[in-house]
Write a protein that binds this DNA or RNA. Sequence first.
DNA 1: ATCATTCATCGTAAATTTACGATAGGTAGT
DNA 2: ACTACCTATCGTAAATTTACGATGAATGAT
Lengths: 111, 111
Amino acid sequence: MIWQYHIHKNIVKRSLEPIAYNQDTEALARFAKALGHPTRIAILKHLENQSCCFTGDLVEVFPLAQSTVSQHLKELKNVGLIQGELKPPKIKYCINKDNWNKAKALFQEFF
Amino acid sequence: MIWQYHIHKNIVKRSLEPIAYNQDTEALARFAKALGHPTRIAILKHLENQSCCFTGDLVEVFPLAQSTVSQHLKELKNVGLIQGELKPPKIKYCINKDNWNKAKALFQEFF
DNA sequence: ATCATTCATCGTAAATTTACGATAGGTAGT
DNA sequence: ACTACCTATCGTAAATTTACGATGAATGAT
């Protein structure tokens, strides 16, 4: 049964170079990915109601560590759906209308 | 410097019980997550054009292993965005209109 | 019954995500 | 300068995702 050893040695060669999809497809997937966690959806819904809020507010709303909330905010910021404004000693987060509308348009076009 | 040992022994207690968000938030996040990969977006766009297609067609379109394409299809099927119909020896995949419209409505309401 | 075709599933490796506590940084007030 | 406050970042563990090749299951044809 020596062959078993060889069979289980299937080293996978991963295609390093990512597939180049068209711009809209990539953008839509990026937005969708950012929306792909209930906490982030909830954060955005909260921001839509309040228009703006501070990190601390969210930490009180969600039963999550402050660092975890911060991480979710970072992701939303990275795709551009929100933006932070320094209001010392706090940071005020708002929806980034431009990119919000971009995302909206992409989803509308898609569906 | 014995304390270093203890400092680095920060075992994380993960909150096992997931947060209960409201139904729509969960559903929207689930759909968004499924759309959160460019390949899956591309597959759905393809299905919108063709109305339907076979797994094999997609394997030719994308530079991905057959098993990988199949896995993406499975995820789309799991959230209900597509459905498969046996057309031996192939399987014909189409968009699931009901759930597609459900997703559409959730995104529209959200934006 | 056997074979070819088509696709799903298994097993696995690497990468990424998600959560936490601990720590660092930046600003306002004392 | 020191302190208090708020938030970002670091380091890490566990879970999940994404990719592959190999295998298995189901059907139609020979």
